Amino acid sequence: MRTLYFDCFSGISGDMVIGALIDAGADPVQMEEELKKLNMDEEYNLSWGKVVKNGITSTKFDVILTSKSDQTHEHSHSHEHEHSHGHSHSHGHEQSLGHEHNHSHVPHSHHGSRTYKQIVEAINEANFNESVANMSLAIFKKIGEAEGHIHGLPLEKVHFHEVGAVDSIIDIIGAAILIDQLGIESVQSSAIPTGSGHIHIDHGIYPVPAPATLEILKGVPIASNDIRSELATPTGAAITAVLARNFGSLPPMTVESIGYGAGTKTFENHPNVLRVIIGETQ
């Protein structure tokens, strides 16, 4: 069985998942084409390229919003992509290799905040294949239910920019497209380190893990570590919580490909990357 294993020794976020899958050999150009089915491509540019994180060559994936007028999403964009108030050391540990793939579109200022319902409709109307649609819908439902639980709202009333942000939509559906493209039949994961400390989000200063992330990780083994930073984002947590059948150490497998996806932050003592391992299990 073709198995994908998430080795989350430095946490997990949506952009780290996509970076790691590209690094493992998935085709980002085909993903970019598929994502055009959402009819949102004038709202963002995608970039990916090699970076070195503390000695490990990895792939950094970014969603760049095209509209400067959309200030509401700028905050959730940085929250989702792991900027927080931990100790982040970035002197000299990271160097960039190669060029980014930037595809310019006409800037468009119509992001607004999206509801859970609008996202579901957009996925259903996009004519993705069944596997991509099902994965994407299940991950969004997991985040929507967590946000609804915390804010005391039913799922259809959940209206929030953390998940509605374009970058989260791209990260989740993009991850589903790449997992489908790679022919993955089973997903497993290590326990998820969440980090510690505090982050600033839309509603104020919150403990790490953020309430939505912790809610999403109910039933998932959490690993403790003393890094004062947000290691698992809601998007990253939901991808593993929904897709992984087992959590634990690397299963016996014949390894076929390995990928490293870079996070935004750089830490002094370990590489801030997500490792994915793809191979055949019994």
Rank of each mutant, 00 (worst) to 15 (best):
3 T>N: 02
7 D>G: 01
7 D>K: 03
10 S>Y: 00
10 S>H: 04
12 I>P: 01
14 G>W: 00
15 D>H: 01
16 M>D: 00
16 M>A: 00
18 I>Y: 00
21 L>M: 02
22 I>T: 03
29 V>C: 07
37 K>P: 00
38 L>S: 04
39 N>V: 08
48 W>T: 14
50 K>T: 15
56 I>C: 12
58 S>H: 11
60 K>C: 04
63 V>R: 08
65 L>A: 14
66 T>W: 10
68 K>G: 10
70 D>I: 08
82 E>V: 14
86 G>N: 08
92 G>H: 13
99 H>C: 10
101 H>F: 05
103 H>S: 13
105 H>E: 06
106 V>N: 11
109 S>P: 11
114 R>D: 02
115 T>S: 15
117 K>W: 02
118 Q>G: 08
126 A>R: 11
127 N>A: 15
130 E>N: 11
133 A>T: 08
139 I>H: 01
139 I>P: 02
143 I>M: 14
145 E>R: 04
146 A>H: 07
150 I>H: 10
152 G>V: 07
153 L>W: 01
155 L>E: 10
157 K>T: 10
158 V>W: 00
167 D>L: 10
174 G>Q: 06
175 A>Q: 12
178 L>P: 05
187 V>R: 09
188 Q>R: 09
191 A>Q: 10
201 I>R: 09
201 I>N: 03
204 G>S: 12
209 P>C: 05
217 L>G: 05
218 K>D: 08
227 I>G: 01
227 I>T: 11
230 E>Y: 04
230 E>H: 06
232 A>M: 07
238 A>T: 09
242 V>D: 01
251 P>R: 15
254 T>I: 15
254 T>R: 15
256 E>P: 14
264 T>H: 07
265 K>F: 09
271 P>Y: 06
278 I>A: 05
280 E>T: 14
280 E>V: 14
282 Q>R: 12
